[in-house]
């Protein structure tokens, strides 16, 4: 029986800006259909880790691979050809364009395959009906929660094997957070692999299978979300301060 490659695998990855490493020897494996939560204090390197996977930051040691394909040396736009997609911190929507245009741009790699784009678009509108209602509105006119939906939708249009989300609940009201959690559970249900950076343990527990804590660039703790007891939670809280 052949060993299956994990959907996302990081082996001893070191990365950073300038002289000092921000990510120090991170090992991570995410199976297909699994959601891993990445927790940790500010400055621990969580965002840098996601950006490294996406190719925005060069890693000089270690290997990153998606379903067996090595990402080392690939430029971001090549990585975005179906290997990895990202919902970055702050969403970074194309604010001057309409909701539908943002989604179509997410599917830029399918620009020659109209049928596929239509199918993807329909599935996004099915998951987020509010986006269908607002499809001709400018992205800047949406509320925080709606913008987060749009950012997730845009990434879904790219249909990547691995999905990265950086603090999807940031600055959102509780109702919006609920909606985001539902969307993420749905994504997990569709068989995609997710890596979610979060500050809020409750959201991470609802959505993820495993929780990992990153501190000062290293993974210091790993817990199963389903079996997380009070002690485990306290351990995590300790790292959050």
């Amino acid at each position: 029986m052949m060993a299956r490659c994990p959907a996302l695998q990081l082996c001893s990855v070191f990365a950073g800006y300038g002289r000092y490493d921000v990510v120090r020897g991170v090992n991570l494996a995410v199976e297909a259909g699994e959601a891993v939560g990445l927790l940790g204090p500010n400055g621990a390197g969580k965002t840098t880790l996601l950006r490294t996977i996406m190719g925005m930051v060069k890693h000089w040691r270690g290997r990153i691979s998606v379903n067996g394909v090595e990402l080392g040396g690939m430029k971001t736009h090549a990585i975005a050809q179906g290997h990895v997609g990202i919902v970055p911190e702050g969403r970074r929507l194309f604010v001057d364009q309409t909701v539908e245009d943002n989604l179509l741009l997410g599917a830029f790699r399918f620009r020659r395959d109209r049928a596929r784009v239509r199918v993807l678009l329909e599935s996004v509108y099915e998951l987020f009906p509010v986006l269908f209602d607002y499809r001709v509105r400018r992205a800047s006119a949406l509320s925080g929660g709606e913008q987060q939906m749009l950012a997730i939708g845009r990434m879904m249009m790219n249909d990547p094997e691995v999905m990265l989300l950086d603090e999807p609940s940031l600055g959102l009201a509780p109702i919006a957070v609920e909606a985001v959690a539902r969307a993420l559970r749905e994504l997990r249900g569709r068989g995609r692999s997710l890596v979610i950076v979060e500050q809020r343990i409750d959201l991470a527990m609802q959505v993820c299978d495993r929780l990992q804590v990153l501190s000062a660039g290293e993974i210091v703790s790993e817990q199963q979300a389903s079996s997380l007891d009070v002690e485990g939670r306290d351990l995590i809280s300790a790292y959050l301060g």
Binding site: P88, F94, L105
Partner: peptide, 24 residues
């Protein structure tokens, strides 16, 4: 056109544009 839109996306946020697959 999608190429026009993606050019505007590059104009606004080149890093994010490359994250959706555009070759800046």
């Amino acid at each position: 056109s999608i190429y026009g839109k993606v050019s505007m996306a590059v104009a606004q946020d080149p890093e994010m544009a490359s994250a959706v697959g555009a070759n800046t």
